[in-house]
Amino acid sequence: MFKSEFPSAYLWIARIVVLAIFIVLPFAYPQKYVVHIVNLAMIFAIAALALQLLLGFTGLLSIGQAAFLGIGAYTSAILTTTYKLPFEIAFITAGLLAGFASLTLVPITRLRGVYLGVATLGFSIIVHLVFLNEEWLTGGSFGLLNIPSPSLGPWILKSETANYLFCLAVLVAAFIALHRLLPSRFGRALQAIMLDEDATRASGINVTYYKSQAFVVAAVITGFAGSLFAHHAHYLNPNDFTFWKSIEVLLMVAVGGIGSLAGAIVGAFVITLLPEYLRVLDEYRMVIFGAMLIAFMGLGHRGLAGLSAAVAMRLLRLRPQSDIPSSPTPHADAVAAPRWSRQ
């Protein structure tokens, strides 16, 4: 599945071109603001990739990813400010701790569809309240100030560009990791779970164990993104991690296209950059943003990634391989799993 109908040679060329553009961007656009915002979009793209693993490849609806983003961010910020630990250690710990926190979700992985969504949403709300109320640890609503720039050994990535290139490297690493994961024994097990749980069980796969592992892997990656977020913003506030942020990450995946890694990245850019670009519209900008979001959803499940692939196919005059059926997707079911009306 999820194997694009695109010939892989073209795909690789496209990926390399996109990567080259991103590497050149901070030098071509020296305005600090542009680099800053694109950097932010890359950080959210990492979080969106992680959710794609859950939603797009395992069929697990999580509306709680902001919790892991926040745990990663606060861990990294506290370790580098209060405990003056080096960034590398803080970064790794951020991922590990987020992964560790996701273990508390193991019991709820057996919930289905919207029920799982609501439970993860509840988790997100609880974690946000902890950020807000545990002032001794998180600074409460005052937030945490003076978070240092990332550093790698002797290099302190103080400039906007250096920070940017580091985040880009992490994004590329996350993409490659997930790209390798999907066609592996682990990745196949996850996709099997999404497509048919009974057949998965009967093939000897422990569904609860793999769902939990998917949550942990996603949480670790999201925790890394959180760490990057903290050292990019230099300032943390609990309001960065409300459940609305969880919904935003979900929007990224949905807009980009459920079941596509590239789509998650595209979606993260659209959701992060669009409101910025719409600033010219002033007070109408969020109205237009909402309307565009609805319009994107009319594109079908393959989202912007699917749309751009279709356009590119046209331009390159490629025919879709007739084998790939345009069947309705299981993702809708993944979310609607309990047919309440049929009870």
């Binding site: 007070e283 109205v287 979001l293 609805i294 959803m297 809708a332 979310v335």
Partner: peptide
Amino acid sequence: TLRLRRVPLMNIIIATVGMSILLQNTGQL
């Protein structure tokens, strides 16, 4: 309109998030 386009249920659910953003900000205007 979305249903007539036969988009998956998940898309309609996300569209309602868009509707929420749209209405809230219209309300503010």
